[in-house]
Design a binder for these strands. Structure first.
Lengths: 194, 194
DNA sequence: GTCTATAAGGTGATAGAC
DNA sequence: GTCTATCACCTTATAGAC
């Protein structure tokens, strides 16, 4: 009766280890190609035990990618009803960049098996895509041309270069990463007509 | 003895239809989640017949993505031993952009199931990654700082915004796409120290 | 919390008739 | 070129003992 859900006792270690092992395997081998047997093996338990902690493979994926989506969603929502201005544009873009930097360890999993990720978030998917679209449209500025919208998309893509450096901060610090890529994205947006 | 390999007789239609159906299904449902049964069903043949044309699922994927990789490789190789200059930088970037635009229909498949694609090109993978890295390093210019290399990566990522518009040229023409995104990528590269 | 054992079903691939 | 029939395998998931 000691460590149920709140207490950080031994019981939670297994769940955390499963999470860690899954993230690692999903990132390197991909979601579909990683079987629950492999994850269980790496942790040192059996498949059945794994099911005690996570009731499905999808739930495991949701636990891994979910926090990233939540954070991203918060940034997207931030622009709803917000009046556009050049300064706010940079602020919002910077906030999004921070989210990507923070969750860059989960980045490869999202990139490598987007299909599976999308399937796992099937119910929230409509909202997410919608908000992402509104986010990019907001970035495009007032009365955007098609070129403006394309540039907004390119700016967001440029931020994805975060993943071109490894997850450890050996080469570049998070601050440098933020500064350099925000500059890059801003340079793209500066090509807009407004 | 009429239509063997060269002649465009009826015989080749099935193979082309398989290719088309597979591209469509891979793009929408993903590679791993698309079964050969589904592809065969869509074409109106059986799985076994499919195997007459493509001897494995991987071979089908290779046929779909292969031409894109070949074209991309050619652009990458182009920079080997080529002396860097601002003008050439734009030329090379434009050539890469053209390749992405040309193959944008296969883009989603590569993006969505990168894992499977990488597995299918296991043997050529070392070369491809190596050449891609050299390509980005060349783009970074002479004596690049870490920031320069990051910007080169961001420029390449920005070009990926091609996929944010659909595969049909209804909204934007290929020429406009080229102009706008080349400008965007150039804007990113202009932040470099050289 | 973890185990063994097993269910139920789909997968890629092959053999051989037509 | 296409079919029917089948194989061997692996998967996710569950039941119930310890």
């Amino acid at each position: 009766m000691r460590d149920e859900s709140g207490a950080p006792g031994r019981a939670r270690d297994t769940k955390a280890e499963i999470h860690r092992a899954a993230l690692e395997l999903f990132s390197s081998r991909g979601y579909e190609k990683t079987s629950l047997r492999e994850i269980a093996e790496q942790v040192g338990i059996t498949k059945a035990s794994l099911y005690y902690h996570y009731s499905s493979k999808q739930e495991l994926l949701q636990a891994i990618v979910g926090t990233f989506f939540d954070d991203a969603k918060r940034v997207f929502e931030q622009t709803d009803g917000l009046e556009w201005s050049p300064e706010r544009e940079l602020e919002v873009l910077g906030a999004y960049l921070d989210v990507v930097i923070k969750h860059r360890a989960t980045g490869p999993t999202v990139l490598r098996d987007l299909t599976a990720v999308l399937a796992a978030f099937d119910d929230q998917l409509g909202d997410l895509i919608d908000q992402s679209r509104r986010f990019q449209l907001w970035l495009a500025g007032p009365n955007p041309t098609i070129a403006d919208r394309l540039l907004a998309a390119a700016a967001v893509e440029a931020i994805g270069a975060v993943l071109s450096v490894g997850p450890d901060p050996s080469e570049v610090s998070d601050e440098d990463l933020h500064t350099i890529l925000l500059e890059a994205a801003a340079a793209v947006l500066s090509r807009k007509t407004n």
